[in-house]
C-alpha cells in the first residue's frame, strides 16, 4: 500500500528547482498587489498566472483537481450568501424560484471571493511544487531557525501517519460495537473513544521520537550542515525580479487609477 507523504508532487521542471524562498517572495508580492490594487482584473490576472505556473511545473492536473475540489464549494457559498443577503444589494439581477439575487452582493462576492481563491491557490501551488526537505535547508540558509524548519517539515510528514493511526483506532472501536452512524448527539459522543487514543498514542510516539532525534545529535552545539543543497541561482533572481517589477507597476498604476 503506497502511503502519500505530504502533498508534494514529484516532477522535474524549473518550478521544482526554484528555491523555496523565491516562491515565498513571489507569494508575498502577489498578495500585496492583489490587496492594494483591489481590482478584479488584477486579481484575475494573477489567478491565470498561477494556473500557468502550475502548467509549466507539469503539475496542472493535481493543481486543478486540488483547487476545484477545495474552492468550488467556497465559491458557490460566497455567491449565494452575498447574492441573497448582502445588505449592500439593491438591484435585483435575477430570481431563482422566489429568491432574489442582487447585483451588488454578487459583485462583492466575485471581488472578495476571487481574491481569496487566488491567494489560496498560490499557497497550494507552493505546497505541491516544493520538496519539503528543501524548506528546512533554505530556511536555515537565510538564518531562520533550523528548528522551525524542522518542525514544519516533520509535522507535514506526521500527518499521514496520524491519519493511518486514526484509521486503526476507528476499526478497533467499531469492533467493540461503537456506532458512529446514528444521531448527531450519538455521533458527537462517539468521537471521545476515537480522539483520546489518537492523542495519547501520538504523544507517546512523539516522546519516543524526541529521544530518537536527540541521540542523533539534534541539540549538538555545532553549525548544522545540509545534505540537500539549496542555493539561490540565476533563475531565482530572474523569477523574483519579474514579479517585483510586475507588482510595482500594478500597484503604482492602481494607485494612479
Amino acid at each position: 500500500m503506497a502511503l502519500m507523504i505530504t502533498n508534494y508532487v514529484k516532477k522535474d521542471s524549473f518550478i521544482q528547482k526554484l528555491n523555496p524562498i523565491s516562491k515565498i517572495l513571489m507569494i508575498i508580492l502577489v498578495i500585496l498587489s492583489v490587496i492594494i490594487c483591489n481590482n478584479l482584473l488584477v486579481t484575475l490576472l494573477f489567478l491565470i498566472n498561477i494556473f500557468l505556473l502550475a502548467f509549466l511545473g507539469r503539475i496542472s492536473k493535481e493543481f486543478v483537481k486540488g483547487i476545484i475540489v477545495t474552492m468550488t464549494p467556497i465559491a458557490i457559498w460566497f455567491l449565494i450568501i452575498h447574492g441573497i443577503i448582502n445588505p449592500a444589494g439593491t438591484t435585483i439581477l435575477f430570481k431563482i424560484w422566489f429568491i432574489p439575487f442582487r447585483k451588488e452582493g454578487l459583485l462583492f462576492a466575485l471581488n472578495f471571493g476571487s481574491k481569496l481563491i487566488t491567494i489560496v491557490s498560490y499557497f497550494y501551488f507552493f505546497i505541491i511544487s516544493t520538496y519539503p526537505g528543501d524548506v528546512v535547508s533554505s530556511f536555515s540558509k537565510i538564518g531562520l531557525p533550523y528548528k522551525i524548519g524542522f518542525l514544519i517539515n516533520s509535522s507535514l510528514q506526521m500527518l499521514p501517519l496520524m491519519q493511518r493511526r486514526a484509521g486503526k483506532i476507528l476499526e478497533a472501536q467499531e469492533s467493540r460495537g461503537l456506532n458512529i452512524k446514528g444521531k448527531l448527539k450519538d455521533r458527537f459522543k462517539a468521537y471521545v473513544p476515537l480522539i483520546i487514543p489518537l492523542i495519547i498514542g501520538s504523544l507517546m510516539e512523539a516522546y519516543e521520537r524526541v529521544l530518537a532525534i536527540e541521540i542523533r545529535g539534534f541539540s549538538a552545539k555545532v553549525k548544522k550542515t545540509h545534505y540537500r543543497e539549496t542555493s539561490f541561482e540565476k533563475r531565482d533572481y530572474v523569477f523574483v525580479l519579474v514579479y517585483l517589477i510586475l507588482s510595482i507597476i500594478l500597484i503604482s498604476r492602481g494607485k494612479i487609477i
Binding site: 505530504t6 519516543e208 521520537r209 545534505y227
Partner: peptide
C-alpha cells in the same frame, strides 16, 4: 535502537 521502528524515523528527510 528502540523497539518501535516508526517512532525512530525523524521525519527530517523525505
Amino acid at each position: 535502537i528502540l523497539q518501535n521502528p516508526l517512532s525512530q524515523m525523524s521525519g527530517a528527510g523525505l
